[in-house]
Design a protein around this nucleic acid. Structure first.
Lengths: 347, 347
DNA sequence: TCGACAAATGTTAGCGCTATCATTTAATTT
DNA sequence: AAATTAAATGATAGCGCTAACATTTGTCGA
């Protein structure tokens, strides 16, 4: 069954063949105790240089790979940090995770990725349970809304936590994100300042996106801009959904003004549909996206959007967890990375 | 340091406060031995219904979360399967991983994701070492080219392996992918059949992409199509790189014909640059992408591309590993998922 | 009613490592 | 040279669980 297993009945290889190399094997070969080898690996500064070198030689010779399950069990530190994101193949979260992961790698941690999807609540608790079973030393969550069951499990794990992509004055532990409400208001103010009278919205049916659009609507109405049309699409978003979003708005009678999209991908779809219909951007219809993904600046025309500092979210989240794990004080458990409206050619 | 820890000096909570719940706690509460609880969790069919119910109640009451580190150590099955991909935030690999992950979840496995990037060799061995330390029950690799050190480590782990996104008659263990050479030739044949005389290539500097383009070039030259211009860009690819790819081709004197791109993203960039320059697609310049990503069909004009069945790669890879893990026979360790040229409006 | 067998549960040992102390060896001081 | 301190190494126990075998309990036919 195993890769490369040798099934010769009269094999000439050593009897160690099937059992994997352990600390003890390395220790025996080096002529020291197991704990010394353990130290050589985990705390090299506590071992004499000469011993260290002998141990490394033995490790190389045997091809020893430390069993982190055993190490984690014994030390109660798994050196594993989990991250729960809505979708792995969502560029937006993937980038944050990448920066998160890289920051942690430098500190000797691996990231275990969990995908929550946009599922029912009980699936969430199952996922969290499966993840906590690996005894991670810390946990990154996406969003700040959790069911009571989830909250209980998360707090019960007694590990550092960081919620991301949103803000709350009362995080489970720490949080790094931005205010979706403020973002929505800022976009409204931008629209008002540019003098648009008619607004269309193409948004994913996603909790955080809906918060932004609601704040946007409120602010618009407060300034006398009414009759805003909305097309809601099911996540995960893609180009096609953006196209059908504009189709729907047009079907509802939207023919000029600005279309606000809950992601750059949707905005790209809206632009594509406009192009297919011979609608000029931004003259006839202006567009504003969300996220400032890598393609936004390179679209033609370049996309006006809301920039979120995704690398910062990942890095700051990693910093918070590492500080908590090391028992260092965290001066501010709530970090607002803010946002920025990037005006380009589509508006 | 821990989330939700209670630092009151005169706390009224029980002394269990800080130690996590173990099997033994559940066993004591239920009034059975630990092994019975273990069975109730892992082999419920081996436990009497009445006992099972008592155990579940105790688990719920205590909030017990099995320690998979301990379980994995004792059973020598981590229920963890690792996947090594070049980049997490590359849509193409992410989708495969997603299907891979979902197939495995159903069988009770979690996926540990490792990002190889496009790094130096020694970083690869470090990554593999870190991953093997978690004692995964199986491992998915991207690509079939590994350094001697990596091969040794991978085979030494004696776990089921599956290489993906490429094909080889001599896999380390199993492989599911497609032939990049055949793909390149097929694209050449398509171009020839359509009567194009001038060809431009925009390709990522990626091993597999380069294999395709080399096969393409050879076939083209064999059919008398010479003078093909190439622009090579550094991965990871994005829209901007596609735009600069076309810029470069034009700078080299490319003004009509077909542009072959090593990814749909690059193709999208090429189309964008063409649009910005007022070059009509496909009349003046035709475009063919690679991957048939979700946006390809929705671009305007819709993108001709090479479809790779990414879900199939993920699912078949999972099947192969599960079969190997369960000790079931694998009739064919080399699976070719093939490819398909999808002709749309850009060519 | 009693074996014969299956079903359910329990006892023991150990997975591979590290924390905690204990001990030895080396370096330094007086 | 003895005493003091620091550096290096070791012995022991146990992390929380499950495999393997052992035992008990229940079921059923003769």
């Amino acid at each position: 069954m195993s890769a490369g297993s040798n099934n010769n009945t009269e094999t000439t290889t050593s009897r160690i063949d099937d059992a994997s190399v352990t600390l003890e094997d390395v220790a025996r070969l080096t002529g020291v105790s197991t704990i010394t080898v353990s130290r050589a690996i985990n705390y090299p500064e506590k071992v004499a240089a000469k011993t260290l070198e002998k141990v490394s030689r033995a490790i190389k010779q045997t091809g020893y790979v430390p069993n982190l399950l055993a190490g984690g069990l014994a030390s109660r530190r798994s050196r594993l940090i989990a991250a729960i994101v809505p979708a792995i193949n969502n560029q937006v979260y993937a980038e944050t995770v990448q920066y998160f992961s890289n920051s942690l790698k430098a500190a000797g941690y691996q990231v275990l990725l969990g995908e929550s999807g946009y599922p029912r609540q009980d699936e969430h608790t199952q996922l969290i349970s499966a993840i906590l079973g690996r005894r991670p030393d810390g946990l990154l969550l996406t969003g700040v809304n959790h069911s009571a069951d989830c909250r209980r499990m998360l707090l019960g794990a007694k590990i550092p936590l960081v919620e991301t992509w949103d803000l709350t004055p009362t995080p489970l532990d720490t949080v790094v994100g931005f205010s979706h409400e403020k973002t929505g208001k800022a976009v409204a103010d931008y629209i008002i300042s540019k003098g648009f009278q008619r607004v269309g919205i193409v948004t994913a049916d996603d909790r955080r996106a809906l918060v932004r659009q609601k704040a946007l609507l409120n602010r618009l109405e407060a300034h006398g801009i009414t009759g805003t049309l909305t097309s809601t699409v099911a996540p995960p978003t893609n180009l096609g959904l953006g196209r059908s979003g504009l189709k729907q708005l047009i079907g509802q009678g939207f023919h000029e003004g600005i279309v606000v999209c809950s992601s750059d991908t949707l905005a790209n779809g809206v632009m594509t549909e406009a192009r297919a219909r011979g609608i000029s951007i931004p003259e006839q219809i202006a567009v504003i996206g969300f996220g400032d993904q890598s393609f936004a600046a390179d679209l033609y025309p370049a996309l006006t959007t809301v920039r979120i500092d995704r690398p910062a979210i990942g890095k700051r989240a990693a910093e918070l967890l590492l500080a908590r794990i090391d028992g260092r004080a965290v001066e501010e458990p709530v970090i607002d990375v803010g946002f920025e409206i990037i005006e380009r050619a589509t508006s």
